[in-house]
Amino acid sequence: MSFKTILAVVGASHGDEDLRIAADLCGQAGAHLSVLVTAWAPEPMGRYPTMTPAWVEQRDRSMQALQERVGQARDLLGRREISSDVDSVYSEVAAADYDIGERSIYCDLLLIGPDAFADADLKRQVLGGGLLQAGRPLLLIPPGTKPTLQPKTVLLAWDSRAQSARAAREALEMMSKAESVRVTMVDPTASLRGSGDEPGADVAAYLARHGINVTVDTLPSGGKTVAQVLQQHAVDVSADIIVMGAYGHSRLRESIFGGVTRSMLDETKLPVLMAR
């Protein structure tokens, strides 16, 4: 699909890098940029938590910092030739993922930039709210990478499950403009159900009907994890981005992900587009 509204979630204490990256991506896509600046209330301490004067003072400082960051973000984006808006949310810690999820409903793509990637608390809230609760596709941008929505080479991680198919559909327009798409399968098993007699053939035919230049790569794990194999292959084929399905669920307000998804969320060295 095309990305016409992109939502970037940033922390009130973060710098400008995530905003600049989001603005650049929106410029590439001709998309509107929505920025959600986040902060959450400190948790009361002690055996019988109460809102002490110190707690109230800390909360007031956080709210002031949040509003100052909103103003700075508006000033920065006002100098860019893109359509944009900036809003903020001040949440209780336990409700932050729900607040982010509600905002994510109205975007085509959700961003986790380098600063948010390095902020474990914020990343967990964005994943729980945006990816799991709202079901929005997510572009994960680790530090030191050069993200683009106009990649030359895309690695599509494929395992014949619904989540992979959802990721492929979300990335169809992007893949149709790429020079090459490498459908990559690790230790696939030929079967009547699932991968079929020729693993990768069905999805390759589907993508080819959309005018996409497809190559199917079937790789052995060779004692490595699936995430390690995918990342190494992405480097080997000079992929600009990895597209993959995300496996997990939210339980008791904790984001719980499968092994491959968790490894990619924590250790990826390339931008990853995830969908669930």
Rank of each mutant, 00 (worst) to 15 (best):
L77W: 09
E170F: 04
R61H: 05
G128F: 06
D108N: 10
A31Q: 08
V229E: 01
A165V: 15
A204E: 13
V9W: 06
L127R: 00
A157Q: 07
G144A: 01
V226K: 03
R169S: 12
E92W: 07
A208L: 06
L131P: 04
D115N: 10
L172P: 08
G222A: 14
Q228P: 01
I242F: 00
R79F: 10
S88I: 00
K269A: 12
R79W: 09
G128M: 13
V272P: 00
A116W: 04
Q232R: 14
P220K: 15
A116E: 08
S84N: 14
A95T: 15
L25C: 10
K4E: 11
R161C: 11
L149T: 09
S88K: 03
A201P: 07
G259F: 00
L270E: 01
G223W: 06
T261G: 13
L230W: 00
D85P: 00
D75H: 14
E254T: 15
T215A: 15
K152V: 04
R20A: 11
A157M: 10
R253D: 11
A39E: 11
R124L: 07
L127C: 09
I256F: 09
E68Q: 13
P142S: 01
L155C: 11
M175C: 12
D24V: 09
D217Q: 13
I256A: 07
Q72K: 15
H249N: 08
Y98A: 05
R253A: 14
S84L: 07
P42N: 07
I241M: 04
P49I: 13
Q64S: 10
I100D: 02
D115K: 01
R69G: 01
S263E: 15
R20I: 13
E173G: 11
